[in-house]
């Protein structure tokens, strides 16, 4: 997966699924997206970090669901008709991400992709891999491995290892 990101050549590498959190647009590499489903009920798991909304049933498999708003320190809101869960595959595991609204799939030319600025976003910049300019909008491309890669998983495990 790392390699795919690193190459960054051609159209295919620059296809992103964009979605809204509050007023901001974020993007993830379309190849990491397994599917998008409507918001559904999740079961909270005790003694896990707050941003982990719980688990849900994805056609018989139980997968964790993360509330992106909480993860990015945004105010929680009640789910509405646009609230969706984006199922993303990280290291072969499926994880659901709750987002405010899924927008579209976009192709971005290489020259419109730049490194993230040091400030100016609600989100800790270590989760932002790139900024992509598209028409008059700016899309923040998320680095999922940084977001939920080994480090974060490690934190979750360490929390519960006190058993």
């Amino acid at each position: 997966m790392e390699e795919k990101h690193a190459k960054g050549v051609g159209l295919t590498a620059n296809r992103f699924l964009t979605f809204y959190l509050q007023e901001e647009i974020y993007g993830v590499n379309i190849f990491d997206v397994k599917e998008i489903i409507a918001m559904m009920k999740t079961t909270p798991v005790p003694k896990t970090p707050h941003f982990i909304k719980g688990v849900m049933n994805l056609r018989g498999n139980i997968i964790p669901v993360v509330d992106m708003r909480i993860k990015f320190d945004m105010p929680e809101i009640e789910p509405h008709m646009y609230t969706s869960i984006v199922i993303i595959t990280i290291d072969g595991k499926n994880i659901g991400f709750i987002v405010d609204k899924v927008e579209e799939v976009v192709n971005v030319d290489d020259e419109n992709i730049s490194l993230p600025p040091e400030f100016g976003s609600n989100v800790d910049t270590k989760f932002i891999k790139n900024m992509a300019k598209q028409k008059n909008k700016v899309i923040m491309i998320l680095d999922l491995v940084a977001l939920f890669g080994e480090d974060e998983l490690g934190v979750v495990q360490a929390l519960s290892k006190t058993a």
Binding site: V45, P46, G54, N57, P64
Partner: peptide, 25 residues
């Protein structure tokens, strides 16, 4: 199983999908 994500979550050993499609721990 709840998967690696919740491996060793204290007090919970797994989950089951109930008749209504929701997960119970």
């Amino acid at each position: 199983t709840l998967g690696e994500f919740f491996a060793k979550t204290e007090g919970v050993s797994g989950g089951a999908v109930m008749g209504n499609g929701e997960v119970a721990l």
